[in-house]
Amino acid sequence: MSVLQLNNVSRFFGGIKAVSGVNMDIAPGEILGLIGPNGAGKTTLFNLLTGIYKPTEGDIIYNFQRAKSTKELKPYKIGNLGVARTFQNIRLFGNMTLTENVKAGYHNKIKYGLLASFFRTNRYYKGEEILEKKVLELLDIFNLLEKKDELAKNLPYGDQRRLEIARALASEPKILLLDEPAAGMNPKETNELMHLIKWIRDKFDITIILIEHDMSLVMSLCSKIFVLDYGEVIAEGTPEEIKKNPKVINAYLGGEGELC
């Protein structure tokens, strides 16, 4: 069974078709690439998947424990279903520590209530102990443990990217959406990121969808790729199929050649 289905999904802004007639069927455990020229509608599609935008037409269905349409769900409800994302422009809490940033990602997993927090009951302290352990484990996985008490805004760019992914994983998602995770990284950092994403998929048993302009990363990492152009899916297939697809080559190169 697929974990995510998009059925003829469109999003219009006035007369502009940002996304038009998109159909997808995504299997559990896939690392799926979403590529296309600037302005193709990739981030708009992520915003649709997370409920920031609602489809003008069509339906988005998550199949976790049971099929659930996103039509009537607010973004936080979709997050609670098991969907997490990062952003093209990093959105960390700059004046909070790394520990506090990741802890914020666990907000929907906290087992104690407001009264327990206010009166500092045993339930509160036990919950905080469990939470702290999980946070430190995640920071360790991302090689950020030694910087746990530093402010997020003081981290190098690559570390900020890893912290954002760690915070997204704190919500224990079933699907992780990564919006240009390699943006601003050097080749060494990009290679490390590729191995990290594969490891995350296997370690946490999740499905990953990423938007990325680094074609070498996409071709090496993804089992399946969807290509958007002017809001429409113009091609889908394996990396080898996408590399040689005439529509894709024309969209990127404007003529003959081979992508990547």
Rank of each mutant, 00 (worst) to 15 (best):
K134H: 11
G113M: 04
Y125I: 11
N122Q: 14
I130W: 00
L144K: 12
K134W: 05
D159V: 02
F118D: 01
V135H: 00
Y106T: 09
L45I: 04
E100C: 03
K77G: 04
Y62R: 03
Y106H: 13
E129P: 01
R123I: 08
P75K: 05
D140N: 12
G127A: 12
D159T: 03
Y76R: 07
F119D: 02
K148N: 11
K77Y: 11
P75Y: 06
K153A: 13
F119E: 00
K42E: 07
G127T: 08
T99V: 09
G51Y: 07
A67P: 00
E129R: 15
H107T: 05
L49Q: 02
F46W: 03
L114C: 03
L115M: 14
L48F: 12
R162C: 05
F46S: 04
K153I: 12
N108A: 15
N47R: 01
N101D: 05
K71M: 11
K74Y: 12
L115D: 03
F142Y: 10
T99Q: 13
N95R: 12
D159I: 04
N108W: 06
E129N: 15
L145I: 11
L73K: 10
R120A: 09
R66L: 05
K109C: 09
Y53Q: 02
R161K: 15
G79M: 12
Y62A: 03
K147C: 10
K126Q: 15
L136I: 07
K71E: 13
T97W: 05
A104W: 01
L45S: 06
R91M: 10
D159W: 14
Y124T: 02
Q65P: 00
S69Q: 10
D59I: 04
F87K: 08
Y157R: 05
V135E: 10
I130C: 09
E137S: 14
L145N: 11
E132W: 10
E128D: 09
E146G: 02
K109P: 06
K103G: 09
I141E: 13
K71N: 13
N108D: 13
D149Q: 10
L139G: 02
K42F: 05
K147S: 13
I61D: 01
N154M: 09
L151I: 05
K133G: 05
T97S: 12
K68C: 15
V135Y: 00
N95T: 08
T50C: 01
E150I: 00
L155R: 06
L48R: 08
F118R: 00
K42Q: 04
K54A: 13
F142Q: 00
E128T: 05
L115E: 06
Y106D: 08
P55H: 04
G51S: 07
K147T: 12
L73Y: 07
Y124R: 01
N154I: 06
K111S: 14
N122E: 15
N154G: 11
G58V: 06
G79Q: 12
I52A: 02
K148L: 05
L73P: 07
K111H: 08
A104I: 08
R91N: 08
Q65N: 13
T86K: 09
L98K: 01
R91S: 11
E100W: 01
V102A: 07
Q160Y: 06
K153M: 09
R162N: 11
L98S: 03
K134T: 06
I60W: 00
L138M: 11
Q88S: 08
T99F: 15
I60R: 00
K153V: 09
